[in-house]
Design a binder for these strands. Structure first.
Length: 771
RNA sequence: GCCCCCGUGGCGGAAUCGGUAGACGCGGCAGACUCAAAAUCUGUUGCCUUCACGGGCGUGCUGGUUCAAGUCCGGCCGGGGGCACCA
């Protein structure tokens, strides 16, 4: 489901359904070709009415619970994709998919009330111990909780008798110089209707735009309404009321009191309009009389001054005191505000899940009854004109009101595709259940033990899914609050970029480039190619390698091995031809080791021999088991790979080791590579004489006696510098370690005949001799 | 502007608890095998110095804590990410 399908339909004239199912089929082929273990019996497509019918039922639940509403609001409009976007989908002022600068439009849209879970979504983050701190931090910042005080100033003139502001710094109330309203504030609108100059000012503010550049460079501007506000603690103190371009309607109350000494924006504003700048918070140890504000507002801690009953208090106590007094006077309320906004879920597009609602002229908004679901998409749509094909469809949207039977129209917006992905993991617990959720299955499987995805979804999918899980739990469908117990954010695959000329030129595919004689040329020519930095594979820069071509050349196991080698999975990985060839050589090396191993005892033979080289090989084997097991459990695949190389190298070092020890080592290696190179492992397993599958075999168990050797090597330092090492029994006492260390020639040389002042022995680790 | 993360050989990266820096791989160099090449195998590969033994330096820079610092703390420099008029 989604925009790429619909855009392809517009460009190529195929129906989005055909395009989508063709892609699913191709993707399924690819996944199977890579030897992934997938339970295909659970497969479903979110664009199938089987799925979105259930989604529409969830919507009805949410509707009943008051978690859905339709409202007119300032929304983000993507002019290229011709639809609105949620706040999370606007990155640096641009549509996350199209890259187009978004515009602000006032439209009536559907919202999910994610803000009603704001506090819970924030608090829940602390319990997600197996999530990356980075993602939790991003969500924390996105939700943006701030505690403050909401309180009112009386006004000296109509149309309102008072104005309510929100502040996180009520302690600075005696440093107030002005009140500022948002251009979109209802009071501003009332005043503007009678004041053409103000109306013009508001229009200019709107024209300023919301693009990042515009905001960054926009200077603070204000318009004095002529109204005066009375200070809440001094009836004789009047503050001017401005309309100011930097005050946002969507946050707090859309109105602020300005304290220039302790807020940079207020200071910029005050300097421009020549308003008083009175410091009221003085840093510790500074004389209040000499403390002035030059160009930067002081936002640090300190003690209150110039503030009557607050003088001498610290910031926190002053905040509490102001709150206490204003609350007691009935004109203030401690409140918590969030940066998070409700999730705008309607999209003016065809290829999505229809929002199951009917608009009736007399009854208003009426949800479609559950027994009439699903509301299916019509197939006969045209993409030859701009706009939403559903809205342009000649008949689809006309229907009868479920309540009064009168003429009514269907909602033509469809859901944001992120709605589809917000609960698919729950559906996987029983993909074919009649109800949206099989509660028993969900209770058994949820939460997802280990979720893997890109960090780009930190405040998109991962936030929406957490909201959905809570909403579904509230509706009785789930018993968990959090969808994903563990989260891992993996990196992307990158590749060098190539251009036909140093100063630009066309991008070239890696397959059209060859490296020889220390240079890089266009394949089959002497034309040099300019090599650019490694970047995320993208079609636009042509630095892509089709998985099929690699699988054809090296096989799926080589690709899998390469992906796991070298780079930790959370980091971006660079695809290189050399690296892939190296993996290919290792695949062959393992196969050779197995096929060349002649005269091995039969499978299951107990190990009796104990020559030195046998013991060495057995130690290497069991160390590898221990290390690989640990690394795989911790998702440190690159280290697991390195451990297997080390084991493979041990065969060379083991020399004459043969018989049962060699069989044990080879079988172990095959079992250890099993999860990473399944095809190779099964072939080798069979070659070793087994009739069963590696996939069904028990994971090997490390013998602790073989993992630890009897003797250990300990480094010896003199004054922190390494001078030598001693090989000594693991259980050797401190005294014998000490004397062996001091006996070293290199240590004696470094001591220059003098006795050591001190000898530090860290058991099993190091000896440091202090001269 | 605010917040967060990261700087280790030619390259990807190890060292996750303050205890031998550079595991393992790629690349390079040398050798064996070969008529030759490829493949394979063996050795070698941080930098400087030395015929050699050895010595010195070394985890972005800088200062500190410690017997001991890639690891902890302060200040800077560089790179990446998030948020961005949020009161």
């Amino acid at each position: 489901v989604g925009l790429p399908a619909e855009n392809a339909a517009r460009e190529k004239g195929v129906h989005p359904r055909e395009w989508t199912y063709a892609n699913i089929a191709a993707m399924r082929e690819q996944l199977m070709g890579r030897g992934l273990a997938v339970d295909w019996s659970r497969e479903f497509a979110t664009c199938d009415p089987e799925y979105y019918a259930r989604q529409q039922r969830l919507f009805l639940d949410f509707f009943r619970m008051g978690l859905v509403y339709r409202a007119e609001a300032d929304v983000n409009w993507d002019p290229v994709d011709e639809t609105v976007l949620a706040n999370e989908q606007v990155i640096e002022g641009r549509g996350w998919r199209s890259g187009a600068l978004v515009e602000r439009r006032k439209l009536s849209q559907w919202f999910f009330k994610i803000t009603s879970f704001a506090d819970d979504l924030l608090g829940g983050l602390d319990q997600l111990g197996r999530w990356p701190e980075k993602v939790r931090l991003m969500q924390r910042n996105w939700i943006g909780r701030s505690e403050g005080l909401r309180f009112s100033f009386d006004l000296n003139k109509a149309p309102l008798s008072s104005i309510e502001v929100f502040s996180t710094r009520p302690d600075t109330i005696f440093g107030a110089s002005f009140i500022a309203l948002s251009p979109e504030h209802p009071l501003t609108e009332q005043l503007a209707s009678k004041d053409s100059k103000l109306a013009q000012f508001v229009a200019e503010c709107r024209a300023g735009g919301t693009a990042e550049e515009a905001i960054e460079t926009a200077e603070k501007r204000g318009y004095d309404t002529g109204i005066r506000a009375r200070h809440p603690f001094d009836a004789d103190w009047e503050l001017p009321v401005y309309v100011a371009n930097f005050v946002l309607m969507a946050y707090g109350t859309g109105a602020i009191f300005g304290c220039p000494a302790h807020d940079q924006r207020d200071l910029d504003f005050a300097r421009k309009y020549r308003l008083a700048v009175l410091p009221v918070v003085i840093p510790e140890g500074v004389d209040p009389k000499s403390f002035t504000i030059p160009e930067e507002a002081y936002v640090g801690p300190g003690r209150l001054a110039n503030s009557r009953f607050l003088d001498g208090l610290d910031v926190d106590n002053a905040k509490a005191e102001v709150a206490r007094r204003l609350e007691a006077a009935g004109r203030g309320l401690r409140t918590v505000h969030y940066r998070l906004r409700d999730w705008l879920v309607s999209r003016q597009r065809y290829w999505g899940c229809p929002i199951p609602v009917i608009h009736c002229q007399s009854c208003g908004i009426v949800p479609v009854a559950a027994e009439n679901l699903p509301v299916k998409l019509p197939d006969d749509v045209r993409f030859d004109s701009p706009g939403n094909p559903l809205a342009l469809h000649p008949t689809w949207k006309h229907t009868a009101c479920p309540k009064c039977g009168g003429r009514a129209t269907r909602e033509t917006d469809t859901f944001d595709t992120f709605v589809d992905s917000s609960w698919y993991f729950v559906r996987f617990t029983d993909s074919h259940a009649e109800d949206p959720v099989n509660r028993d299955a969900a209770r058994y499987w949820m939460p997802v033990d280990q979720y893997i995805g890109g960090v780009e979804h930190a405040v998109l999918h991962l936030l929406y899914a957490r909201f959905f899980t809570r909403a579904m739990a509230k509706a009785g469908n789930l018993t968990v609050q959090e969808p994903f117990a563990g989260l891992f954010t993996q990196g992307m695959v990158c590749h060098e970029t190539y251009r036909a000329a140093a100063d630009g030129g066309d991008w070239l595919l890696p397959e059209d480039v060859e490296k020889r004689d220390g240079g890089v040329f266009m394949r089959g020519t002497d034309i040099p190619v300019s090599v650019g930095p490694s970047e995320k594979m993208s079609k636009s820069k042509k630095n892509v390698i089709a998985p099929e071509t690699i699988i054809d050349a090296f096989g799926a196991d080589t690709i899998r091995w390469f992906m796991l080698s070298d780079t930790p999975p959370e980091r971006d990985i660079e695809w290189t031809q050399e690296g892939a060839e190296g993996c290919w050589r290792f695949v062959q090396r393992i196969y050779r080791l197995i096929t060349e191993a002649e005269g091995l005892p039969l499978p299951g033979t107990t190990i009796a021999e104990a020559t030195d080289s046998d013991l060495e090989l057995r130690r290497a084997t069991h160390r590898a088991i221990a290390a690989v097991t640990e690394d795989l459990n911790a998702l440190r695949f690159n280290r697991a790979v390195a451990q297997i190389y080390t084991l493979a190298n041990a065969f060379g070092a083991a020399g004459a080791a043969g018989g049962a020890a060699r069989r044990e080592a080879l079988e172990t290696m095959v079992l250890l590579i099993g999860p990473m190179m399944p095809h190779l492992a099964e072939t080798c397993w069979e070659t070793l004489g087994h009739k069963t599958l590696v996939a069904m075999a028990r994971w090997p168990h490390a013998d602790p006696r073989l993992v630890k050797s009897d003797t250990i090597t300990i480094a010896v330092q003199v004054n922190g510098k390494r001078r030598g090492e001693i090989e000594i029994a693991r259980e050797a006492g401190e005294e014998s370690v000490k004397s062996s260390a001091l006996a070293l020639d290199s240590v004696q040389r470094a001591l220059e005949g003098k006795p050591p002042r001190r000898v530090i022995v860290v058991p099993g680790r190091i000896v440091n001799v202090v001269a």
